[in-house]
Design a binder for these strands. Structure first.
Length: 429
RNA sequence: GCGGGCGUCGCCAAGUGGUUAAGGCAGCGGCUUGUGGCGCCGCUAUUCGGGGGUUCGAAUCCCCUCGCUCGCCCCA
């Protein structure tokens, strides 16, 4: 076979699977609208530089997972690996980064060059939410709550929320200095990966999975001890409020998250039933990003939810689609045009109408209608067409009991009555 | 980038050295040109991911390669 194949780590989403996607997207968007969050769309393609500066050159995402290439003008471009940097760029560029209180969301494909596995692809989809211009503690709580509520609305089970604080700039750099010093002294006790990170991305070492290194780190200086009273206060309030709101969480002092731009609150939501790629949602505060990227000092907080993982976790009830309401069986030159007119008329009601375009035998068309589980059927042959009428009847399991009704093509009132009482009745409830 | 598993029709698969590669589902055609659930009949892989080798003979053995998949790392 030398047919074309999709690239590794990408997938085709076929009609049957998309029913679930559409339902998931619908639930998410409805919840966002109700929470007064507005959509923003930025390009999938950006200058590579944007992510290097925004996310951080030392991060894994930038240093080894970016899809980059030179375009015809020799510019280095990248397929976005995440959304926050793009949103920040867009706000600065359009002169609205300082506009207070912007709640934004986006949903779309992201790209990371990694080995694919369950719940992980090279092209994957994220929902991102960013609250820009918010610095109050309540905005942290609001955004965590929003993430939590969306996941619950989607019916996802076994959710675990982990939170931590990374402090402000000063806290972090004080800690980092002390930490790096300590790391250098104890370098030989660390695993190789961690050793490499000492200069590139020391905070990341806290998040190591290496058991040996974890043990060694027990004696290292702790970020927590470097927190200013202001930072500490903030963190305490968040925990307190989450308890009041009855959102269960656990503290994870080693949660630092992969991207450089986080400050203060960092959080992650995992689901036990997902296996090794357990993270469903990750987020945190990033008060420095916008200023670092050339905007004025603007606090912000956000999160991202991985849609593929959500799809894996959400239940079968989201896979149900609407059946065809009316299948129009038609054959013959006079009948065909009449059938087309009729299908257009019927689609003005909220009905799914399938017009048979095959022109094959009636019995074939009936079989097709049956296979589609159409709720009702209209038959127009030339016999009917010449008399300007058609036949309609219900088309379900009790087929023998369903009486046909003949309706004149001009008799809209009779048609509407039939449709109302047979197809739309339960739908309107 | 590093490990493990797997690759026979659109899907699920049997076959593990002998001359025709089971079967099921789906699809198509017919029994039944204008009325559907069932049933019956027929059709649908010169070929077993690709290449090379061993052999009189390979889907079956060996080598290489590609792909998929799961895990590590990291993340959504």
């Amino acid at each position: 076979m030398n047919n074309f194949k999709n690239l590794r780590g990408t997938v085709d989403l076929l009609p049957d699977q998309l029913i679930k996607w559409q339902n998931v997207e619908k639930i998410i968007i409805e919840q966002l609208i109700r929470s007064s969050v507005k959509e923003i769309r930025t390009p999938i393609l950006e200058m590579t530089e944007l992510f290097m500066r925004g996310i951080g050159e030392g991060t894994d995402v930038v240093s080894k997972e970016m899809y980059t290439f030179l375009d015809k003008g020799e510019r280095s471009c990248a397929l976005r690996p995440e959304g926050t940097a793009s949103v920040a760029r867009a706000l600065i560029q359009n002169g609205i980064s300082t506009k207070p209180f912007q709640k934004l969301w986006y949903m779309g494909p992201m790209f990371r060059y990694e080995r694919p596995q369950a719940g992980r692809q090279r092209q994957f989809h994220q929902l991102g939410v960013e609250f820009v211009g918010y610095k109050s503690v309540r905005s942290d709580i609001e955004i965590i709550t929003l993430a939590w509520d969306i996941l619950e609305k989607l019916g996802i089970k076994e959710l675990n929320l982990e939170i931590n604080t990374l402090g402000n700039n000063v806290d972090r750099s004080n800690f980092q200095k002390a930490f790096v010093k300590w790391l250098e002294v104890n370098k030989n006790f660390l695993d190789l990966d961690s050793q490499k990170r000492i200069n590139k991305n020391p905070l990341r070492i806290l998040d190591t999975k290496n058991v040996q290194t974890k043990k060694v780190l027990d004696d290292a200086p702790r970020l927590f001890d470097f927190l200013s009273t202001e930072s500490l206060e903030r963190y305490l309030i968040i925990k307190e409020k989450l308890k009041l709101l009855k959102i269960p969480f656990i503290e994870n002092k080693n949660l630092v998250r992969g991207l450089d731009y986080y400050t203060h609150t960092a959080f992650e939501i995992t689901s036990g039933s997902l296996g090794s790629q357990a993270t469903v949602c990750g987020g945190g505060r990033y008060d420095n990003l916008i200023s670092q990227m050339g905007g004025t000092e603007t606090p912000a907080i956000g999160f991202a939810i991985g849609l593929e993982r959500i799809i894996l976790l959400s239940g079968k009830e989201l896979e149900e689609s609407r059946d065809t309401d009316i299948y129009i069986v038609n054959k013959g030159i006079h009948a065909e045009i009449l059938a087309m007119e009729l299908s257009r008329k019927l689609r003005n009601y909220d009905l799914i109408v399938e017009l048979d375009l095959s022109g094959t035998s009636f019995s074939k068309q009936f079989k097709k209608a049956n296979k589609l589980k159409s709720k009702s059927i209209i038959v127009i042959g030339d016999d009917e067409a010449l008399k300007n009428e058609f036949v309609i009847r219900l088309f379900n399991n009790e087929y023998s009991k369903n009486k046909e009704e003949t309706i004149s093509i001009k008799d809209n009132i009779k048609l509407e009555k039939w449709v109302q009482s047979n197809l739309l009745l339960d739908k309107n409830l």
